[in-house]
């Protein structure tokens, strides 16, 4: 082995041939699902993860879909980032997802990384958890005992931690379609393909007359700035019933920034990240409103 070569430690590998097969394999000791592997394999190289068994779920094509079903958009866990980015139906109803996918990693990583892997990795700087939190999506989790659905806002319980238990798989994400609403995701990163310094996603449902629209409901997701469950709950609360205007959006941004807990790292100091949280929240709200009103 060459010096400096990063290699995962010894591991067993099985390829799941059906969902049931995957669940059976995952119930074994120290088994981990392997989707795109674009988070898990780097973690294994660094010994931050050392599972005994990898259960490759890439053959489970039934988990790869994007479809509108009643008043929900359903996205299979094995859907690749590139497929979500290219999805016309996702873009039409949820531009926040297209905005987010356009800036997640780079085109080659997006070819292989999956939506389910992104959510389950639960990296505190991941873009999609914030986008899906803003959308108040629910996730579907399957285990030997059956199926359960969990609001995405309860799915992430801490950095790199979700409610998915041993022997379980995330199978899909469901996003409710709301009338007279739209959304946007904005991110600041240091260079193409990099993780965010900070990012904010906003979803707005508007009411009132077109000339003076009012916020009926707001969803705000934040990532990389230490927002609990990727959500700016106080800012959402503040906006409800207020005019959908510049003043409200700026105030909501300030509230979001006050309630997050960014940590200084190589991507920037705390005050800069807090500043970005405020500014990106306000801008995402502005863009979501413009889209909802058909102005953008």
């Amino acid at each position: 082995m060459m010096p400096g070569m990063q290699v995962p430690s010894h591991v067993e590998y099985e390829r799941a041939t059906s969902l049931e097969h995957a669940l059976t394999l995952l119930a074994g000791p120290d088994a981990r699902a392997l989707a795109g592997g674009h988070s898990l394999i780097p973690m294994m190289k660094l010994r931050l993860a050392a599972p005994e068994l990898l259960v490759d779920i890439n053959g489970l094509t039934e988990l790869s879909f994007i479809r509108l079903d009643g008043d929900e958009l359903r996205i299979g866990a094995l859907t690749r980032h590139a497929d979500l980015l290219g999805s016309a139906v996702a873009g039409e109803y949820f531009p926040i997802l297209t905005d987010a996918e356009r800036v997640i990693a780079d085109p080659v990583v997006r070819n292989w990384g999956t939506i389910g892997g992104s959510l389950c990795q639960a990296d505190p700087s991941e873009d999609l958890p914030a986008a899906f939190a803003a959308l108040r999506a629910t996730v579907v989790i399957r285990g030997a005992g059956g199926v359960r659905t969990v609001p995405v806002r309860e799915f992430h319980v801490g950095p790199y931690e979700t409610v998915v238990g041993p022997g379980e798989l995330l199978t899909e994400v469901r996003v409710p379609v709301l009338p007279r609403s739209s959304s946007a995701h904005l991110k600041v990163h240091r260079r193409a393909g990099d993780w965010p310094v900070a990012a904010a996603g906003a979803v707005l449902r508007l009411g009132g007359p077109a000339a003076a629209p009012v916020v009926e409901a707001a969803g705000i997701g934040l990532t990389a700035v230490g927002a609990p469950h990727f959500v700016a709950a106080e800012a959402e609360e503040f906006l409800r019933g207020r005019p959908a205007d510049e003043e409200s959006f700026a105030a909501a941004g300030a509230i979001a920034a006050d309630h997050c807990r960014p940590v200084a790292d190589q991507r920037g100091p705390e005050d800069y990240k807090r500043h970005l949280a405020a500014e990106l929240t306000a801008r995402a709200l502005r863009q979501a409103a413009a889209r909802a009103l058909g102005e953008a």
């Binding site: 590998y13 592997g37 490759d56 080659v108 070819n111 292989w112």
Partner: peptide, 20 residues
Amino acid sequence: VVWLDGTPVKSCTVLAVMAD
């Protein structure tokens, strides 16, 4: 970068067994 089933991937982050 190589193609895996017709799509470019970063082969330092794919296991050989995944290409079986």
